[in-house]
Design a binder for these strands. Structure first.
Lengths: 139, 139
DNA sequence: CTTTAGGCTTACGTTTACGTTAACTCTAGT
DNA sequence: ACTAGAGTTAACGTAAACGTAAGCCTAAAG
């Protein structure tokens, strides 16, 4: 599957973002396309980095934090023990951040369950239970 | 536990934010303190709304999205079936968003596991295994 | 051969989420 | 009477993450 190359608008369309965003992410070092003359050529590696970036965005990380996360994944890990220790430390702190977010999600979901139950109960008091079941669009 | 009241700096200190942030959140309708003369008085209800807001922030929601989430939790739910259906719909879409974030977290954690294994393997090749165990600060 | 489509750089504009004075007020303490 | 501390409004400033032209280049299509 590797060895594929993409234009800027290829990737933009594929991920529903704008070319401007890709150029901006390049400025920030999140993607590193090569050039064909003046035009940007994106590799599969860039595509992966972009996916990681967008995933990080959905989780509310800043582009700078995202860069850290991406570069951890990057197989350009030197064998220097110092660097490896540093990497392990960063992995650990990021993991904690992610677990915190995970807990936040759980608490929010639980709270929403309570709200939903109350809403359903209030509905059933006014409506025949059958119509409640039917008209909910749970995509 | 209810019936407690707080000054703006009380809450600010308690949650490690600035008074300015609380005033800003009030402008956005995230908290609704009453006034004692000109001074803001925060209730336990405001405190809860603030906790929800900060939780939402950690998950990367915008203040506007956070307001929606907060107002879902707010027990000012009218018994109007129309409103209740609307509430259930919003609960459903928010739940999906949260589950997406959840999946993003899982994928990131899995990827980080792989990175960690590789790093540890690279370390063990250079260092005696014992020192690896000891010097990692896993708080 | 001149449109048109896509890409480029440069640069100013915009939104969100606050930070940072500035200029007052009000109350409690010495 | 004075001052220190906490709070207020109003307003300008700022960092992040892009949006939005403007002006130029170039290859392919009519």
């Amino acid at each position: 599957m590797p060895d594929l190359e993409y234009s800027i608008s290829d990737l933009a369309q594929a991920f529903s973002i704008t070319p401007r965003t890709l150029r901006f992410y390049e400025m920030k070092g999140l993607v590193l396309p090569k050039r064909q003359g003046v035009n940007r050529i994106y590799s599969d590696k860039d595509k992966v980095r972009l996916e990681l970036a967008l995933r990080g965005k959905r989780l509310g990380f800043s582009l700078e934090e995202i860069k850290e996360i991406i570069e951890m994944q990057d197989p350009t890990q030197p064998d220097d023990p110092r660097q490896l220790f540093f990497l392990l430390q960063k992995l650990h702190t990021k993991r904690k951040e992610l677990i915190n977010k995970f807990n936040d999600i759980n608490e929010t979901l639980n709270a929403m369950d309570v709200v939903e139950e109350r809403a359903l109960a209030a509905l059933v008091k006014r409506q025949p239970a059958r119509s409640v079941q039917i008209s909910l669009d749970l995509t």
